[in-house]
Amino acid sequence: MFKLILTLAGICAFLPSFAQFAKVVDKDGYANVREQANGQSKIIGKVNSNEIVYVFDPFDLASGWINIDYVENEKIRFSGHMHTSRLKLIADFEEIPLAIAEEHDATFILRDIAVSIQSAPFDYELNKKLFSSTNYGDYTIEDKYKGKQVWGTDGTIPQTQYTSILITKGNSKIEIPRGEFENLFNVNNDFANCYYDKDSDRIYITSVNSDGAGGYAVLFIIENGKYSKKIVLMPF
């Protein structure tokens, strides 16, 4: 698994080809996660169909196996190998193209679907009382915001923050609750993408955000006209 600390440019150059979210698609209703990249290796976990994993290596058509992380509640539940026949990359679903691109505003439109992602500079002085710190002996890091893990910084002051993620589909409007993204900082809308999974009626919103070393990948899922959940992890 590729486990290096990268600059923002390096992370984003690496991710599109090698590391991204994928959906489990298995007619048996689940897929095994194995310790090693072969069918005889120990099964260390199972992931249900339609669940999301994060894949780190290019699909190896010769071996048919790929390295994955399965995340629950913003923590890695297990890491291992899954057969590529049980996966479909999120980027292989129908793309919702970018229509408007500004510094703090990105809008994606496909037929009757529109996704608007807005961010803004973060006022640390106004919000610093909402941070809490952890002492690591030789140093202290502000690593909690409103009691939640801080994403997108490496102990530095956040520069930007999501302010709104609004999805319109036909006559329906779905707004992702603020509490789902208020601890996700240093937003880079240049690296946001949206996709539509017609069979599951899912809209996927992905992004890679960072201040450099504190990079993270996030996936928001809208399903059947309602906000479902988010998955967030460090992609290295």
Rank of each mutant, 00 (worst) to 15 (best):
R77T: 14
K144L: 13
N127C: 00
I68F: 04
K146H: 09
N127R: 02
I113W: 00
T84P: 01
N135K: 04
A99K: 13
R86A: 15
N127Q: 10
K88L: 10
D112A: 08
A101C: 05
S116A: 10
E95Y: 02
F78H: 13
P121K: 09
Y145T: 10
A114L: 08
E103I: 05
P97V: 03
A62V: 14
K128F: 03
T140M: 04
D154W: 14
E95D: 07
L89M: 12
V71E: 05
Y124T: 08
I96M: 01
Y136P: 05
R111H: 11
E95Q: 13
T134E: 09
A101F: 02
S132T: 15
S79P: 06
S85M: 07
S119T: 04
S133G: 00
E102Y: 01
R86Y: 10
E102L: 08
I66L: 05
Q118A: 02
N73L: 06
S63Q: 10
D143S: 10
A62R: 13
Y136F: 15
N135T: 03
D92N: 15
F131A: 01
Y145S: 08
F93P: 05
F131S: 04
I96F: 01
W65F: 14
S85Y: 11
G64C: 07
H81Q: 15
E125Q: 12
A114Y: 04
E125G: 03
D69K: 14
L130G: 00
G64N: 09
A62D: 13
D112Q: 13
Q149G: 06
E94G: 00
S85Q: 12
D143L: 09
I100R: 03
N127A: 03
N135C: 00
F131N: 04
D92V: 11
D112G: 06
H83I: 08
M82F: 10
W151I: 07
M82E: 12
I109T: 10
T134G: 02
N73R: 11
E142M: 12
D112R: 12
E103W: 00
G137F: 07
A91Q: 14
F78K: 12
V115G: 00
I90P: 05
Q118V: 01
E142F: 12
Q118R: 14
E103H: 10
D138P: 04
I100C: 00
L110P: 00
N67M: 06
L110G: 00
K144T: 15
A106F: 02
F78P: 10
Y70S: 06
I96Y: 02
A101V: 02
T140P: 02
N73Q: 12
N67Y: 15
Y124L: 06
Y139A: 03
D69T: 05
A101K: 12
W151Y: 13
I68E: 08
F122A: 03
E125W: 02
A99S: 14
G147S: 11
D138H: 11
I66M: 06
V115K: 02
S133F: 01
V150S: 12
K75D: 05
I66W: 02
L98F: 01
D138M: 12
H104S: 03
D143E: 10
E95A: 14
S79T: 15
L130M: 11
R86I: 00
Y139E: 07
I76Y: 06
G137T: 09
S133W: 00
F108C: 04
N135V: 00
K148Y: 07
G147C: 08
A120T: 08
L87T: 13
S132L: 04
E102K: 11
Y136M: 09
N135D: 13
F108Q: 01
F108N: 02
K128S: 09
L87W: 09
K88T: 15
